[in-house]
Structure formats: structure tokens, C-alpha cells
Design a protein around this nucleic acid. Structure first.
Ligand code: FES
Ligand code: FES
Lengths: 151, 151
DNA sequence: TTAAACTGATACTATATTGATATCAATTAA
DNA sequence: TTAATTGATATCAATATAGTATCAGTTTAA
């Protein structure tokens, strides 16, 4: 069960770069190179974020992308919703004229509760929070020592 | 973002039936009919649960499936792991020789924490717990009143 | 002792989702 | 004017999910 897809993954990492270089435009090319993402794929992700008002862009030479929203107002939950659709544990389990009274369905209650918990957890994790952690440790991507294996 | 796939969904519902009729063998056919699941697909799900020791079967006429494990020892978390693989928020985000020191990676920490929370939530929801709720309300699938739409 | 109701095992197909690539027009800075 | 960019799409490949079909073996009961 994979919770974050590549798009969400790339979005988070791109936002971390944009957050670190706030105020200047960063090109898709440089993000792709630095973070080792497929260029065109990343561009699609960036465009989607523009449409949702998270970032802005500037065309032409010296153009690129810049963070628009406050980093603390961008939660992983929102990114998941943008790239993977709303968090829903299950479609209603007993569809097709079987489960009429939703308020009495115990499964639904249990499921909606979990939905909330999961959703809240992701909401807590904001780009701002991650950026501060990065600044504190100064270590998003430490260099690989000889012989060491990446995870 | 769909958290439970059909297989897991069907597995939960089949187990609820088996749990309710503990001690006797219930055929795949009757489960499929009552819960409106595709017969052969359900059988695959049931066989997988046999392999994992959750249920047992008896072949031939009057055969079927019966719950083996204690219903309180079957959590949705285990079902997810069986049918959708281990709960993992993301593969390591900075692979390919970039992220060497896992213990210092803030993203990894945040991600592993969420992984735990999500995992625990699903662990709490056991078939036994659901069954008791069903008994309390007596209502897994209330009949549909005229004109009412299912969820 | 045979037929019907079952599961075991497996192969196959269809559809949806995810991940990635390619192309071309429009914009901008130097 | 040209190279470096984004905007907008179209297309493709790989994988995962959902569902179907078939046949062999087992058991009960007529
Ligand atoms: S599963 Fe839909 S209301 Fe119970
Ligand atoms: S993402 Fe793998 S250790 Fe940081």
C-alpha cells in the first residue's frame, strides 16, 4: 500500500526547493537535475500546482517557478488531494441498494473516523514545518560516504 | 486516494459473515450472493485468507469456509498488508545515491511517524470489534426504504 | 454409484492508474 | 535574433486492480 505517489513525492520535494529559494525563480530544469526527477513529468506537476495557486511561474529566459502561498499553509494533505484525490478509506462498502441507512452503519462510522485521523496527520505536515526541520539539521540530502548504500 | 481496494473490502465483509456464522461452513456462493460480490473474485480472496491462516475450508457438498483465527486477532491492518502490501507512506524519497544518512533525514522521520499512526489506526479496527458493533445495532445492512438512495 | 455442490489451482482478459516522454507554440532576457 | 524558458497537449509504457473462465479433485446425498 503506497500512500504517496510519484507526483506527490515530486511535488513535496519541488516545493522544498522553491521554499528554500523563495523570492527568485527556479527553473524546472534545475529542480529536475538537482532532485533527479524526469523533467517533463515534473513540469506537469508544477503546472498543476500553479493551477491550485501554490506557486507562480515566469516564462522565458531566467524564468521558472516561485512559491506563492505561505509554506505553512501547504500541507501534505492538500498535495495528496491535488495529485491523488480526496482521502477516502473506502467507497461506501455496501452499495447497490443494500445499505440504506448510512447513519446506522457501523462500518461507515469506523471508516470515517480513520479517514479523519489519517487526513489530520497529513494536514499537520506542512512544507513550512519540513523546511524548518531542514534548516535545523542543514541536511536534506547528505552526501554519500564511500561504500554506503542509499536507503 | 483510495485506501481500501476491492479485495480488502470483500475480505472484511466476508469475514464479518464468517464471524457471524462461526462454527458452520459458509459457501463462497452464499457470501457472493448475499454481499453482491463477483463469485470467482471472492474465491480468490478467500483462498488468500486460507493461506494466511485466517480461515479454513471444507471441500465438497455442504463445504465452505469457516473462521479460524480469533476475530479480535484479525485487524484491518493485516488485511491491508495481505491484499495491498505493507503500509508505506513513500519509498525512500531520495534514492539513487543521494540520501546517504537515513537517520538524519527529516523527511524520513516525518514519514515514518505517519506510517506508524496510520498503521496503528488500522490495527485497532478488528473484525471482532466490528462484529460487536454489528450485534449492538443489529444493523449491518438495513433494508432500503422506498425512494431512498444508497450511499 | 453417480450427480450435484462444493473448493483448489491457475490461466486469462479487461480496465484503470501511474509514470514517463515528446512536441510545438508562446514568452522573455541578453 | 536566438537560446532558455513555460504553456498546453498528445501519446505511450508499465503496473496495479478488477473480474472471468476452466478444469480437476472432494464430499454429500439421492
Ligand atoms: S457501507 Fe455504506 S452506509 Fe454502510
Ligand atoms: S529520503 Fe531516504 S533517507 Fe531521506
Amino acid at each position: 500500500m503506497k500512500v504517496l505517489t510519484k507526483k506527490t513525492d515530486y511535488a513535496i520535494r519541488a516545493l522544498l526547493m522553491l521554499g528554500a529559494k523563495r523570492g527568485s525563480y527556479v527553473s524546472a530544469k534545475s529542480i529536475a537535475a538537482e532532485q533527479d526527477m524526469p523533467y517533463q513529468f515534473l513540469r506537469g506537476v508544477l503546472q498543476e500546482m500553479i493551477r491550485h495557486g501554490l506557486i507562480v511561474s515566469k516564462e522565458g529566459v531566467q524564468g521558472g517557478f516561485m512559491m506563492e502561498k505561505d509554506a505553512d499553509d501547504i500541507g501534505v494533505r492538500q498535495l495528496i488531494e491535488i495529485f491523488q484525490g480526496r482521502v477516502q478509506v473506502s467507497e461506501c462498502m455496501f452499495r447497490k441498494q443494500i445499505c440504506a441507512n448510512r447513519s446506522r452503519c457501523v462500518l461507515r462510522h469506523e471508516i470515517m473516523r480513520i479517514e479523519q485521523v489519517v487526513s489530520n496527520e497529513f494536514e499537520q505536515v506542512t512544507i513550512g514545518k519540513l523546511l524548518r526541520k531542514l534548516n535545523a539539521t542543514g541536511n536534506l540530502m547528505p552526501a554519500l560516504k564511500d561504500g554506503e548504500e542509499p536507503s
